[in-house]
Design a protein around this nucleic acid. Sequence first.
DNA 1: CTGCCGATTTAC
DNA 2: TAAATCGGCAGA
Length: 197
Amino acid sequence: MKRLERDFFIQDTVKLSKELLGKLIVRKIDTKSLVVRITETEAYVGAVDKACHAYGYKKTNRTKTLFEIGGTAYVYMIYGMYCCLNVVSEEKGEPSAVLIRSAEPVCETDTMAENRFGKKYSFLSPYQKKNFMNGPGKLCKALLIDRDLNEIDMCSSDILYLAEDNKKIIKEIKFGKRINIDYAEEAADFLWRFYYD
DNA sequence: CTGCCGATTTAC
DNA sequence: TAAATCGGCAGA
């Protein structure tokens, strides 16, 4: 499994959002490697995007991670109870990132099911399987990703990184408006959400 | 220090 | 359709 290197992340954020589709997230816990395939992403660009936490280069204790070099993990808590995983993009000083909105399990599926529902995958209801990792909060819960992993460098970390998937072929990338950012005025209409079936 | 609000999920 | 739940942020 070939790890994604620095130069892959130092590029235009919207372009990176599309290229991250089909890539693998590797999360090592103890001796286990949880692996999932990215199926949905969203781009957030601080320079021009009112939906981005670092809009207008706003730098606070939370958003400082977005200013890091591409390949850094940006993990933040939302609604007081869920975490979201982002991949920081572009050069250091340019606050932008790609939100990982959903994924599909590749291996260690039982471990992820335990993390989410406290039972093995085969015991889940059809509804639970269908909606297993189709949301940023669900994804983080299944992979045990919390704010302790914020600011980790995924180009050098052994517990959280991204990798190539040579088998996966995506026929068609679909796109649309980003989810739950109605407050972001004109940016709410940016077509910066990408996914495939 | 106070008060509001959110890149969500789940249950009713 | 609404509750859960709390850190981040702005304004006083």
